[in-house]
Simulated scan of single mutants.
Amino acid sequence: MSDIEIRGAVASDDRALAELDRRTWSPVHAVMPEPAPGTPFFDAAHPVDEVLVAERGGRIVGYVRLARAYGDLACAEHVRQIRGLAVAPDERRRGVARALVDAACARAAREGARRVALRVLGGNTAARRLYESAGFTVEGVLPGEFFLDGRYVDDVLMGRSLP
């Protein structure tokens, strides 16, 4: 794991992140349609400053998107939300996802946040185990919230306090 570098994304990461997003898309974890080839990763709704990337040997192998949970709403500026996490298939089970989650929580704390929240699909047991191992707990479940790949899927709300 020590050969993984976590850093803030830069605009020139767009193509590599868009390709990673397409390679890792699955109805097991995504509610949005599969990204089309050529779709940029960054746009007005998904700015570069919300993304941390993981690199190994100069290659982007994962990312996490961390945003203010409620935009500029002053009464909730202490809450951040993980809005996306992906790891290259050949890098899974090597500590990349955990390093990204830990880095996102550390960044949120540096920004003055007191809590981090996220949403994960009920059937995504690998992600749920990852988040639980990083201190997140289930705070609610929206049963059958999404109809994906021919079935209804729960939306699981998770969160954790920051020191």
Rank of each mutant, 00 (worst) to 15 (best):
S2Y: 00
D3I: 10
I4Y: 07
E5K: 11
E5S: 14
I6C: 08
R7V: 08
R7S: 09
V10A: 15
A11R: 07
S12L: 13
D13E: 09
D14F: 08
D14V: 11
A16H: 09
L17F: 05
L17R: 01
L17E: 08
L20M: 09
R22N: 05
T24E: 12
W25N: 10
P27V: 12
P27L: 13
V28F: 11
P33R: 12
P33Y: 08
E34N: 07
P35S: 05
A36M: 12
P37H: 00
F41V: 13
F42L: 14
A44N: 14
A44F: 06
A45Y: 02
H46T: 11
V48K: 08
V48Y: 05
V51I: 12
L52D: 02
L52E: 02
V53T: 07
A54H: 02
R56M: 12
R56C: 12
G58I: 07
R59A: 15
I60Q: 08
V61W: 02
V61I: 14
R65D: 08
R65H: 00
L66V: 06
A67I: 11
R68Q: 12
A69T: 03
Y70P: 05
D72K: 00
L73G: 08
A74T: 11
A74P: 15
C75F: 09
C75Y: 10
A76G: 14
E77Q: 14
E77T: 13
H78S: 12
V79I: 15
R80S: 14
Q81C: 11
Q81R: 10
A86I: 11
V87P: 10
A88G: 11
P89L: 09
E91N: 07
R92H: 02
R93A: 08
R93G: 03
G95E: 02
V96H: 01
A97C: 06
A99G: 08
L100F: 06
V101G: 03
V101A: 06
V101Q: 02
A103E: 02
A104P: 02
A104R: 02
A104S: 07
A106Y: 00
A106R: 01
A109V: 01
E111H: 00
V116Q: 01
V116N: 01
A117E: 15
R119I: 13
R119Y: 10
R119W: 10
V120D: 08
G123K: 05
T125K: 00
A127F: 04
R128C: 10
R129Q: 11
S133N: 05
A134V: 09
A134F: 04
G135T: 08
T137P: 00
V138G: 04
E139M: 06
G140T: 01
V141D: 05
L142N: 11
E145G: 12
F146W: 15
F147V: 14
F147C: 14
L148K: 13
D149Y: 12
R151L: 04
R151D: 13
Y152T: 13
D155E: 15
V156F: 03
L157D: 09
L157Y: 10
L157T: 04
M158N: 03
G159K: 01
R160V: 05
S161M: 10
P163S: 10
